[in-house]
Nucleic acid binder design. Structure first.
Lengths: 138, 138
DNA sequence: CAGGATCCCGCTAGATACTG
DNA sequence: CAGTATCTAGCGGGATCCTG
């Protein structure tokens, strides 16, 4: 509604944009991995580099990732659970205990993320160098 | 400054958060790949799946990605150039021509992104199924 | 053609308080 | 302990205008 000139252009562009990216489902995934909390949660659940897929409690995750708020942590866990990447196990103990664990699907994605992290560890210093060089020259 | 109780907790948390993530440079990379335009520009420059590292013009990129605004495109290209992931080549023709191309570094990251995209194409349907299942049950 | 500068809106992420 | 609900600020990002 209210298709102004700009919106029309964006509409027209959207068609080509979709043709460019919507053909493959990668756009949906991009929205997923583009969330930094998703990656961090995956890292935390995957053992942050170690193969240690032991289930983590909510507070444990919050403590490990730390920089995350309850809202973001819960929200991220919810979406990951919704997509079948993590499992949520509620143990009806006295105060209630909840365990989160990676599914096979989540684990496979986590392994990919680890590769990305490896790339970062190997090349980030060069990126830093380029960045500083570029900054000082400017 | 103005370190309230919450800020103090966040501060304290920040230390552990850094210990958890700052040990590896992955956090800096996360900020990089967490930008969807970065990925899309990398795709466009990398040929979107094809190995076709031919330099692209600014308007060409804008047309290919389409959904992006000039501001975001320019901003993304600037940061990528700053990090040494893409090169910016200005040819002083009559109206001025600018070519963007992936550096070796950018290409390697692009290849990684392609792997992620492959994962997406293979598993996104299952994710979709899980998602719908989860939605309809709720 | 390629991009700088500016205004401005929306949505997200964070803080706070409350509950089972 | 493991959340939920609400409120708000900040900024990402789009639109628009202008320049070399």
């Amino acid at each position: 509604m209210a298709t102004t000139t700009a919106a029309a252009r964006r509409d027209e562009a959207g068609a080509r944009y979709n043709a460019f990216l919507a053909g493959c489902p990668s756009r949906a995934l991009l929205d997923r991995i583009s969330d930094k909390w998703v990656v961090l949660v995956l890292c935390a659940l995957g053992g942050d580099g170690e193969e240690d897929p032991e289930p983590r409690r909510y507070s444990e995750l919050a403590r490990t990732i730390a920089g995350v708020s309850q809202k973001m942590l819960t929200q991220t866990l919810r979406s990951l659970e919704r997509d079948g990447l993590v499992t949520r196990t509620v143990t009806p103990t006295v105060p209630v205990t909840v365990h989160y664990a990676l599914t096979d699907l989540g684990l496979s994605l986590h392994l990919l993320m680890q590769q990305v992290r490896s790339w970062a560890q190997e090349n980030m210093d060069e990126v830093q160098a380029r960045r500083e060089e570029h900054d000082t020259r400017a």
